[in-house]
């Protein structure tokens, strides 16, 4: 029992990342009908937003402290960060410590802007071209974005820490009446899951309860008719693209402490997120979320030692296997609408 709970918990944080990326992917597909292979790159850029903010906050200057000596007997060089000088040592240190959550504020405008530029500058011209062309051009874009990040940040992963408060682990088992130290779950992963749930909830609420969301949903169902009613659906879809980019970016920002960002993390997640979208159903938002969590948890179950000894290598391929079975038996996915890309 405790092992099962542990695996479910382990699957949740990866599942959250899958769900968030898949949500954005399927939002773009549902609104614009575009298959965006560059979405993983947006996730990666989000993670590097966290890195960038951290770098900016820790910018500093060096002063020489004559009162202290280093081990060679020379006056000690002390590094000061501007933030600490401006806000005082305590508040400054706190700001630096909380750089990853703060990066959310930094990432939203950046990601929305990138989303707008991408949609207006490139993807707009691909609405009427075949899906293969869309895949190819966004694949090219993904390579370009990835290489730009590599140029500025190098090829090595950059560790970016969570705030001090969240560094420890929660003894989850005790809460449920198990022995201590049986089910341990890092705080930050819990935060990530709650954050993902909040974002997903916000996106759904936005689509469900606002007039804007209503128009977008109408446009997803029948774009032409909404256009004929005198609504500028293109502009709203562009905004949705920006939102989808922001969702992917935020997923990346918060993922930075879990996995040190490197330039190819987007590509790694992209393939899996596509599989998630397909399993959930192309264009179905609840399907993407459900499939994201489901596959995340399934993956962590498959990596249990008991399962691995029974079926060696299953943890590596379980997601693909599920996708193949789903595609062959139920091509519209778990929750896809009937007739959407069933061919």
């Amino acid at each position: 029992m405790d092992a099962i709970i542990l695996q479910i918990l382990n699957g949740l944080d990866k599942g959250s990342a899958y769900a968030l990326i898949a949500l954005g992917l399927t939002l773009i597909f549902g609104t614009l009908g575009v298959v965006n292979f560059a979405h993983g790159a947006l996730f990666m850029i989000g993670a590097f937003c966290a890195v960038t903010l951290n770098k900016i906050l820790t910018l500093g200057y060096i002063t020489i402290d004559e009162t202290q000596k280093d081990f060679l007997g020379n006056p000690l060089k002390v590094e000061n960060t501007y933030v600490e000088t401006w806000f005082g040592p305590e508040l400054g240190a706190a700001i630096i410590d909380w750089s990853v959550p703060l990066a959310i504020l930094f990432a939203i405008p950046v990601m929305v802007a990138i989303g707008f530029i991408m949609e207006r500058g490139l993807i707009k011209h691909f609405y009427n071209r075949p899906h293969a062309d869309q895949i190819l051009v966004t694949f090219g874009l993904a390579i370009v974005l990835q290489e730009i990040i590599k140029y500025f940040y190098g090829a090595n992963p950059i560790p970016t820490g969570a705030p001090e408060v969240f560094r420890g682990s929660l003894d989850f088992g005790v809460l449920l009446g198990f022995d201590p130290n049986v089910i341990i779950y890092p705080y930050w992963r819990l935060v990530y899951f709650l954050f993902a749930a909040a974002i997903i909830g916000a996106v759904f609420a936005f689509l469900q309860f606002t007039t804007f969301g209503m128009v977008v949903r109408a446009g997803m169902a029948d774009r032409e008719t909404v256009g004929l009613l005198g609504i500028n659906i293109d502009r709203r879809f562009t905004i949705m693209f920006g939102i989808a980019a922001a969702v992917a970016g935020l997923a990346g920002v918060m993922y930075a402490p879990i996995n040190s960002p490197n330039y190819h993390m987007g590509m790694d997640f992209l393939v899996l997120s596509f599989v998630v979208v397909v399993v959930g159903g192309m264009g179905s938002l609840p399907g993407a979320v459900l499939a994201g969590f489901l596959l995340g948890i399934l993956e962590s179950f498959a990596s249990m030692n008991e399962v691995k000894s029974l079926l060696p290598g299953i943890d590596q391929i379980i997601i693909y296997l599920v996708a193949i079975i789903i595609l062959l038996t139920r091509p519209r996915g778990l929750m896809g609408r009937k007739g959407v890309m069933e061919e």
Binding site: F274, V275, V278, Q316, I317
Partner: peptide, 26 residues
């Protein structure tokens, strides 16, 4: 059995599976 983007993703899934298996179990 599928065409369009589903075909691309199926082939991608198979290739990634072969890659993962070649790396680990095989």
């Amino acid at each position: 059995r599928r065409s369009g983007i589903y075909f691309s993703i199926l082939t991608l899934a198979f290739a990634q599976m072969s890659f993962a298996l070649a790396y680990s179990v095989l």
